[in-house]
Simulated assay, not measured.
Amino acid sequence: MLKLYFSPGACAMASHIALEESGALYDAVRIDLKKGEQKTPAYLAINPAGVTPALETERGVITQNAAILGFIAQTRPQQNLAPVGDPFRMARFNAFNGWLGSSLHPAMGRLLFSRPPLEGEARTEAVEAVLVKLQLVEDGLLEGPWVMGDTYTLADGYLMVFERWARGADLLDPGRFAGLNAHLDRVQGRAAVQRVLEAEGLDAV
């Protein structure tokens, strides 16, 4: 059975949603980042990087949301969670997820989770960096009501994580980001996503 190591509300929610959407049998193990459980010897033996998510499979551990989402989609092709039969579209799916992990996530992480918190000019610059990236998604990266157009894919659950962070930080102005706000509400309305929120002890935002 698959085993997912996650931390509530963190980016690992994307992998949690992916498993729930896939219908696969899995166990979910909560890692408390505030208590430093990601740095314990037991967890470092699973993921030496000391972050979540990590997915234990019968062949070994997979880390990084983009990789986990691709794995789940390809091992559960009957669920149509990614365009696995179309190499070009699958590359676009992977590119979007890679951009979330390498570009949007670091920008939002710096703004929201720097310790000590950013202040003054540094905070202003960090806010603008995040808004620029959100605008890129709003204006050019969303292909339709879903990330890939008319069909939900696991990229939507990944994007939702950062939309939740943005709305919670009052960065997702409805007038400026109508598409992202509608997308967030659409994803949070999915039954699988609601089950994940409940399992992680979270409410829709």
Rank of each mutant, 00 (worst) to 15 (best):
I62S: 07
M160A: 12
L131E: 07
T40V: 11
V193W: 11
A24H: 04
R195I: 13
E119T: 15
L136D: 11
A12E: 09
Y158D: 12
T57F: 08
Q38T: 01
P116V: 14
K34D: 13
V130W: 04
M108I: 13
P77R: 03
Q78A: 15
G120T: 04
G98Q: 07
P53K: 11
A129C: 08
A107M: 07
G144M: 01
N94A: 15
Q194L: 01
G189E: 09
A129P: 02
E200P: 04
Y5H: 13
Q79C: 15
A24P: 11
P53H: 12
M1Q: 00
V84L: 01
F88I: 15
G179I: 03
G60L: 02
A18I: 02
T63W: 12
D139K: 07
L25T: 11
G157K: 03
W99Q: 00
E37R: 07
E143M: 10
F88V: 14
A169V: 10
E37P: 01
Q74R: 10
C11H: 01
G201S: 02
G120F: 04
V51P: 10
D150F: 10
L44M: 08
D185N: 10
V61Y: 08
D27Y: 15
S102L: 10
K39E: 09
V196R: 04
A28C: 15
I17S: 00
H16Q: 10
V193M: 05
D156M: 05
L118F: 03
P83F: 08
I46K: 00
V84C: 06
F96D: 09
G175R: 03
R176T: 14
F88A: 13
E37Q: 15
L25F: 14
T63G: 10
A42V: 14
A182E: 04
P116Q: 01
D156S: 03
Y43T: 00
E128L: 05
L111W: 07
L118I: 06
P174Q: 13
P41F: 02
P53T: 09
E21C: 10
A24F: 01
M90F: 11
Y158C: 05
A28W: 13
E119N: 05
N181Y: 04
E119K: 12
L19T: 06
F71D: 04
R76S: 10
A95W: 08
L142W: 07
R190D: 05
V29M: 13
L184W: 02
